[in-house]
Write a protein that binds this DNA or RNA. Sequence first.
RNA 1: UAGGAUGUGUUCAGGC
Length: 335
Amino acid sequence: VVSWTSLVSLYCKLGKLAEAQQLFAKIPSRDVISWTAMIAGYVHQGCTEEAYALFCKMQQEGVKPDKVTLLSVLGACTNPKALQRGKEIHALITKAGFESDVRLGNALISMYAKCGSIPCARQVFDKMPEKDIISWTAVMNLYCKCGSVLEAHQIFARMPKRDVVAWNAMISGYARLKRGEKALELFHQMERENAVPDSVTFTSALNACASIASLEKGKEIHSQVVKAGFGTYSFVQNALVDMYTKCGKLATARELFDRIVDRDVVTWNAMILGYAQNKQGKEALVLYERMVTEGVKPDRVTFIAVLLACRNEGLMEDRRRYFTSMRQDHGIKPT
RNA sequence: UAGGAUGUGUUCAGGC
């Protein structure tokens, strides 16, 4: 059983779910660990239906889930439609007497957050006998995501300890709501408290600059980014391109864009949108054509950017053409 | 000693 399970896990990690499933089916005497490995594999690949089905089958066959199994299967509840499922798993956790487990508690908070049930998440948090930094950050982020940044900040202020992830969550929470000044204020407070910013911090800080079109702050953070050695991180690069376009500095953005070696769809979108939003629709369309030529697959955001560019230029004919092409050549539907 | 996980980040038009 041991070696079989190891193999299943290995295949799952390689993303070879079909092979893993075949092996799993052949295991002579599957134990709870084998089941968990397979369930976790499905969850990891985003196959939540399969994961949950397997979890049910496991119980039908009389195998009792342990903490690890429950933790893994909670990851299969990622949207409001899965709330009922999540609640059932919650009940199982309670029934098994695992209620006070910190990691299960954290996973429950995160599950309820993803399923959109803030009161349930909060209740789990409040009832946790022991909370760690992850519990605090999870519940804080939940308030950020639903727009209650005030509530989030209160939680942040009450946190017994803060690590870089907690700071990042709070900074990005403000940045997301276009509260750039507040986000940057926190960024500087973070520096004063000698917390070390990472690439996520810088991405959020750049986002904050973009949200208030602050070129001055943006440039300052740009230089910090380079000094800290994050200048080649793709998330950071994309955020830089976006920041410069939002500040109206298209030439600077374009210089950066041209120097980026591994441009992904987000890089292209940011630059195309930059042109489109700055009344340079023609340039946007030229860039779009190049994107397609280079074999980068456009997505929904590209679609929006291209249509915006056409509209701004009054190119109604082209607009129709792109509209059709997007649907037929790229399989993108307007939303 | 075989299996596990939980918190943060980049691009988003218009309409309603």
